[in-house]
């Protein structure tokens, strides 16, 4: 199967799974913004996207994408490490037009996974997971709060250390995406000399947009908790 056996095929899997995750993030971040505009509106979304079948199937699909992206990331990075050979250069200089993030995609990815773990514990576990457990008849967590997204946002971001952790996490995401988005297009062959500066610009805009949308909610609720 060429999606596993060929280098370009493997990169296509990275590219498609990565792009799908970026689209999800855009969607997710747009919904988070609602929490700043209207608390009730946000909780309505939480209820709507709770433990119904559509949302569950979408969550499972998302989890699958994340797993594929991570497995391929480690596989590709391992192969690349080996392709470099046993002897390493004694001196290596950096080139001006090589982005720092492009050389540290795996490390940035690992930070993103750790952040994701924290995030799932902070929110998903207390919301959708609690709902699922209740549907299954168990009595984990507090079902009354399971769709009260705003409660959990306030709870989490009133603690300064969560604010710091989330901002670091978003920083890593920004670096990952500034390279990731244009690289994904390039991998699919959607680039040429004219478009090179444009795809890089699109990449910066998309990553900044995603990160700013998420960060604004974190900062907004932290400031609210102070006053």
């Amino acid at each position: 199967m060429w999606l596993v056996n060929s280098s370009i095929g493997r990169k296509v899997v990275m590219s498609i799974s990565g792009t799908a995750l970026v689209l999800f993030l855009l969607f997710h971040a747009a919904m988070n913004l609602v929490a700043i505009i209207s608390e009730d509106g946000y909780n309505m979304i939480c209820e709507f996207l709770g433990a119904n079948w559509y949302a569950l199937v979408a969550t499972a699909g998302l989890a699958f994408l994340v797993v594929v992206h991570i497995l391929y990331a480690f596989y590709i990075t391992m192969q690349n490490y080996r392709a470099r050979g046993k002897e390493r250069y004694a001196v290596s200089a950096r080139q001006a037009d090589v982005e720092w993030s492009s050389k540290n995609m795996l490390a940035l990815g690992v930070i993103i996974v750790l952040g994701l773990g924290l995030h799932l514990f902070n929110f998903w576990y207390k919301m959708q997971f609690t709902e699922i457990m209740h549907m299954a008849g168990a009595s984990a967590g507090d079902i009354a709060l399971a769709t009260d997204g705003v409660y959990w946002i306030k709870e989490t971001f009133s603690q300064w250390y969560y604010v710091v952790l989330y901002l670091v996490w978003l920083g890593a995401l920004w670096f990952h995406l500034t390279h990731g988005v244009w690289s994904a297009l390039h991998t699919l062959g959607l680039n040429n000399n004219t478009w090179m500066p444009r795809v890089k610009c699109i990449s910066n805009i998309v990553s900044t947009l995603v990160v700013l949308m998420f960060a604004s909610v974190v900062v907004y609720y932290f400031v609210i908790s102070l006053i």
């Binding site: 056996n5 060929s6 280098s7 370009i8 493997r10 990169k11 590709i76 192969q79 690349n80 080996r82 392709a83 470099r84 080139q95 037009d97 090589v98 982005e99 492009s102 050389k103 995609m105 390279h179 244009w182 690289s183 390039h186 991998t187």
Partner: peptide, 17 residues
């Protein structure tokens, strides 16, 4: 591309070096 992969070259991640 098949020959390049067979010879053990790595996967391009578009770093541009």
């Amino acid at each position: 591309v098949a020959k390049m992969d067979e010879l053990g070259f790595g996967n391009c991640t578009n770093t541009g070096a």
